[in-house]
Design a protein around this nucleic acid. Sequence first.
DNA 1: TGTAACCGAATGAACGTTCAATCAAAAGAT
DNA 2: ATCTTTTGATTGAACGTTCATTCGGTTACA
Lengths: 194, 194
Amino acid sequence: MNVQSKDNYGKRVAVLNSTLALLKEHGFHGTPISLIAKHAGVAAGTIYHYFDSKETLILELYVHVKDQLVKAILVGDDPEKPFKDRFFNLLINQFNFYIENESALFFLEQYMSSPFAKNYPEKDSQLFIDKVVTFFHYGIENEQFKNIDPRLLAPTIKGTLVAAATFQLSEHIVFSKEDIIQVINVIWDGIKRQ
Amino acid sequence: MNVQSKDNYGKRVAVLNSTLALLKEHGFHGTPISLIAKHAGVAAGTIYHYFDSKETLILELYVHVKDQLVKAILVGDDPEKPFKDRFFNLLINQFNFYIENESALFFLEQYMSSPFAKNYPEKDSQLFIDKVVTFFHYGIENEQFKNIDPRLLAPTIKGTLVAAATFQLSEHIVFSKEDIIQVINVIWDGIKRQ
DNA sequence: TGTAACCGAATGAACGTTCAATCAAAAGAT
DNA sequence: ATCTTTTGATTGAACGTTCATTCGGTTACA
């Protein structure tokens, strides 16, 4: 008789979404709990029913957003297809997620370069570890990539994608599908075994 | 009779350096003015002699750090040398600056993905605009680079370098000179006109 | 003597967090 | 079916703390 059916945890998600939206506008300092509460249509005390503190709210928001990201990345992935095709599909998905979820991109970047990431290095989406990390291990072991340290690979790729997405968002220019593929080609040319 | 000779502005720089060091440990929220004052060996009120507010302190810190970065990047640059050599020299310098100034790297990244960068887009080091931006314009106009949007170039390069530097710093592994060149080759292979 | 640098206690606003009270709905009792 | 009890989600005012900023006074120096 596990009850999570009807309605519940709607407010939890509302709080997470409001926090995400407000962080982009005002940053961590600058978005008080009271504002999150008002934005989410919830009383301040309610937030403390779902989260122990403002700090854990941020930590759980990180895992929440990262989960969404991974789900978006994996859309249409087919292990039967050639590695390069899968690679391009994953990166196109990731790019699209970023430009469709600006506040998520902003938050993830901010989180990563904040004391949170240093203080809670173990906090991450399990889905991310299971799926995405595994994919790149495969690419390394099957010698699709240059012989560079594998742990360097992911941040390198992410760095370029984030740069491209941030560029489009800040300049309000829309990349065509071809433009995006060109950007991913920059990454691919850089890291593929030649 | 421009006075900045003897001693002065020593405390201003001390405050900037302390702020930089403390931000890395505690983040913006989490480093009160009182702590900066104590760390810099200065009274809280003194900080307000040099900076209008905590906010402008951060803004001026950004320009200050960016200036140091540009000076470090330009060491040994020689416009007579081949473009590729200059490119590699600049990026090696940038990488070295990052790993020798961890708190600066951390701060620059945090600043860029914070509301500050959105709210004060005009704030930047004049030296950076004059020298570094100019260099890349040259590379684009003389067709050294792939035909991608020039504004995409700088963030792409920075993204990879930052990824590599962050990787070395967090994993406490020391890249050899050859490793660094390999990383820069990833960038070069990605963006060069082929 | 006058000016600029400097100090640090005082101030007042803002904030995270607590908690006693309310309410709706589920479970249990008859 | 009806009433009673229990549960837990929800509220928002109140609390105590923290913090950025101010300001009256002190020191250093020209």
